[in-house]
Design a protein around this nucleic acid. Structure first.
Length: 483
RNA sequence: CGGGAUGUAGCGCAGCCUGGAUAGCGCACCAGACUGGGGGUCUGGGGGUCGUGGGUUCGAAUCCCACCAUCCCGACCA
């Protein structure tokens, strides 16, 4: 069995041997991305970008459905604007790239390349908002941002990355909180229903919250190596940026008030999350909803296949396209069928459709699932329906598999000893009570490398005691070693 | 940014220690033929500023210095 598995794939380091290397191998071999000549910056290749586009669409249609509109703000932010919100500057200063020269002259005022756009968007909001009737403002932007990272990894952390950032302004605190949680819910929905990736949604600790936010929420996913990955964040900014950027409106009672803000973002990191949630030793396993090709047709070239098999393959392709399936017909004759099987499995295509002379004789095709490698012969009539059903089944199966994995790797700890043992032996999420102090949080981090990922909203712990200091704890929190 | 490792063809590597003639191997790539239901076979072929810059030397992939890049492990982050 092990030998057989070996035969399926070359060129990829097994996950069990070196997970990091497996990840890099898959990204490069599947042609999702490549290193560029620019330090810390990657090139997203067409296949990887196609995945991103599908994720974008999944997010974007939900943003639109919740009343948001897209806009675009400048890449550059004048230094003085960034400085306006104290926590914000302090948080981002170490990661900011500066532009100090334009053409042959030093700039009067240096520009930062946006690490995020609160400053510039807040400035514009101040101009656009006069009255409560202008509220809420619900804007999203798709953009690139730059954060000067010291250590980079393909998709997970690069100097420049693509994301979306939503920015909203509201009349009341309650509305802002509602918006923050609504968008957190959108992220959770996309993660679970499009990416088939189960996540824990919850609130970040004070030390982990966004620089300048009142409250930060996140969705946290579990990668196959047992480390957690933050996959999306939503911030309630309170009135912090409103005060810093003077975003005021005349309220219904004629008084002058500061708006309540939110911002929320998800990035190309999601592509990395998908890879590490579903991938196996043969390569990528893509959720059908975001797979650039949901089906690959491999014709079996035998004898006069170009006259017999290929036309049928084209008909199948047309039929599937017609049914709204993203399908690729791999009719290259420089490669053998076996080679193509391995190649498209490596690239994570959820379903393979084989058609050869024998199948035509029997009016059938052979379908093979990427997730289970299950092979089944199905009648050629109605194949589009079968494919649609199977795609849904793959989508559901890989979500369930990922969910089982997360459940198997999520444990409750009641003592610090137990807590440490879990993190050593079987990495994953550990749910444990926490007293709420930064001291305990920091000590746990330095002693175990685990950080607080987030705090589930629905988990109070009456009578719980902090895992670290044994003082009464108010909340259960998810700890994990994280990316 | 600290600790460690590695840079030789698209990818993976050998050669370096002990300097010497035309820098090799596997895979990939190109041409053709035979093939084809789980990474085919044969024949022929193309491709290298040996990471970059300096130095030592009659001579450097090989020795020395600096820089750069990538990976791994830590501190910071989406």
């Amino acid at each position: 069995m092990a030998e057989k598995k070996e035969a399926f794939v070359k060129e990829i380091t097994p996950q069990s041997e070196d997970f990091s290397r497996w990840y890099t191998d898959v990204v490069r071999r599947a042609e999702l991305a490549d290193y560029s000549p620019v330090k810390g910056c990657m090139v997203i290749r067409p296949y990887g970008y196609a995945i991103w586009e599908l994720i974008q669409q999944a997010l974007d249609r939900r943003f639109k459905a919740t009343g948001h509109v897209n806009a675009y703000f400048p890449l550059f932010i004048p230094r003085s604007l960034l400085l306006k919100e104290a926590d914000h500057v302090e948080g981002f200063a170490p990661q900011v790239a500066w532009v100090t020269r334009g053409g042959n002259e030093d700039l009067e005022e240096p520009l930062v390349i946006r690490p995020t756009s609160e400053a510039i968007i807040g400035t514009m909001f101040a101009k656009w908002i006069q009255s409560w009737r202008d509220l809420p403002i619900l804007i999203n932007q798709w953009a690139n941002v730059v954060r000067w990272e010291k250590v980079t990894r393909l998709f997970l952390r690069t100097t420049e990355f693509l994301w979306q950032e939503g920015h909203t302004a509201h009349e009341t605190e309650a509305e802002a909180e509602e918006e923050t949680l609504r968008m957190l819910g959108v992220y959770q929905d996309v993660a679970e229903h499009e990416l088939a990736m189960p996540v824990f949604a919850g609130r970040k600790s004070e030390s982990e919250k966004f620089a300048g936010a009142a409250r930060t929420y996140s969705i946290e996913a579990l990668m196959k190596d047992g480390r957690a990955l933050q996959a999306g964040t939503s911030h309630n900014l309170g009135q912090n940026f409103a005060r810093a950027f003077d975003i005021q409106f005349q309220a219904r009672d004629k008084s002058l008030q500061y708006v309540w803000g939110t911002s929320w973002g998800a990035s190309t990191r999601l592509v990395g999350a998908v890879i590490m949630t579903h991938g196996d030793d043969s390569g990528l396993v893509l959720p059908p909803r975001i797979a650039p090709y949901q089906v690959v047709i491999v014709p079996i070239p035998r004898g006069d296949w170009r006259e017999t098999v290929l036309p049928r393959a084209r008909e199948l392709q047309a039929g599937l396209l017609n049914a709204g399936v993203r399908v690729m017909l791999d009719d290259r004759d420089a490669y053998t069928p076996g080679w193509k099987y391995a190649e498209w499995e490596l690239r994570g295509v959820p379903l393979r459709l084989e058609i050869g002379p024998k199948d035509i004789e029997r009016s059938q095709v052979v379908l093979v699932r990427r997730d289970s490698r299950e092979k089944l012969a199905v009648p050629m009539d109605g194949v589009a329906r079968t494919v649609a059903t199977l795609l849904e089944d793959v989508q559901r199966s890989i979500f369930e598999r990922a969910l089982r994995f997360r459940e198997d790797h999520t444990t409750c700890a009641s003592s610090y000893e137990e807590f440490r043992q879990i993190l050593e032996g079987r990495p994953g999420f550990v749910l444990a009570p926490w007293c709420g102090t930064e001291e305990c949080e920091a000590e746990i981090k330095s002693e175990t490398q685990a950080t607080i990922r987030n705090m589930p909203a629905d988990r109070g712990t009456p009578g719980g005691r902090c895992i670290r200091c044994d003082r009464p704890a108010s909340v259960d929190v998810y700890f994990a070693k994280a990316y």
